[in-house]
């Protein structure tokens, strides 16, 4: 059986929309018929549960990380979308996973039967942390502060030979924003998705469902759908390269950090 395609959603700056992108990418992929697991690996500030109205759900990220529970026992299923979610604990106690438990966790994820695993991560440099992924999705907003930190994240991922993509969120197309061209010229590669600022996003959070399920025709939903289609083909390519047996190509791709 094919391994899941693991996407780590990250940004060095906070509040740019990591959780929004995680939940909505997962939501659209699920709506397209894939089986999807969301892992709330933001152990600093886990809010996936809040986005989906699962605050009271059993939260098991720490338990699974510590090897005290099996993934299947602590999973939550989101009622209206059928998404599988490993929620994080909202607790006063701070938690910092050690590298060992992270690599054990990553191995475990690779053995699951999902098509996609979407990991929401804490802001900042969590470099070695969650390095064993197929792709890192860098989320940014079209302003200077966020661009600077996105470029720095991309450098970190390059250093660790992790394939990365760039999503620009909350685009309002105003003169004071950085233009896509400016962002691409600093990033050195194409922007993978441009998502508009849309009131449907906070409204859907208040309604506890992904935007795509809340309002299919919202601008944000359409942009997210296009982006997810791109992703679903990425996941299939990934399976093919695994399927040809060599594994050489994917190894080479990883070794060269090729985009």
């Amino acid at each position: 059986m094919a391994e899941p395609y693991i996407v780590r959603v990250s940004s060095q700056k906070g509040g740019v929309g990591k959780t929004t992108i995680s939940v909505n990418l997962a939501g659209v992929l699920k709506a397209l018929g894939y089986s999807v697991l969301i892992v709330d690996a933001d152990y600093v500030n886990p809010v996936v549960g809040m986005h989906l109205g699962l605050e009271d759900a059993s939260s098991g990220f720490r338990a699974v990380m510590r090897g005290r529970a099996r993934l299947s026992n602590v999973l939550t299923i989101h009622p209206s979308t059928g998404l599988h979610i490993l929620c994080g604990e909202i607790s006063q106690k701070q938690y910092e996973p050690n590298p060992e438990s992270i690599s054990r966790f990553a191995r475990m994820l690779h053995q699951t039967k999902y098509d996609f695993v979407i990991m929401d991560t804490p802001p900042g440099f969590t470099k070695e942390v969650f390095a064993d992924v197929n792709e890192a999705l860098i989320v940014m907003t079209p302003d200077m502060q966020s661009t600077t930190s996105a470029i720095r994240s991309s450098q970190v991922f390059d250093r660790y030979h992790i394939r990365h993509s760039l999503v620009v969120n909350r685009i309002r197309s105003r003169a004071f924003e950085l233009s896509p061209r400016e962002i691409e010229s600093v990033y050195g590669s194409r922007i993978d998705a441009m998502l508009p600022e849309d009131d449907a996003v906070p409204m859907s959070i208040a309604a506890h469902i992904p935007v795509y399920h809340y309002r299919k025709r919202a601008q944000f939903s359409r942009a997210m759908l296009d982006f997810s289609r791109l992703y679903s083909s990425r996941g299939e390519q990934h399976e093919e390269s695994k399927g040809t047996g060599g594994g050489l190509i994917s190894w080479l791709r990883r070794a060269l950090g090729g985009r």
Partner: peptide, 17 residues
């Protein structure tokens, strides 16, 4: 904080700390 649930919950946690 911003007037959102996600942000307010973390503000309260920080206040407790």
């Amino acid at each position: 904080t911003t007037p959102e649930m996600t942000s307010c919950v973390s503000a309260v946690r920080l206040a407790n700390d």
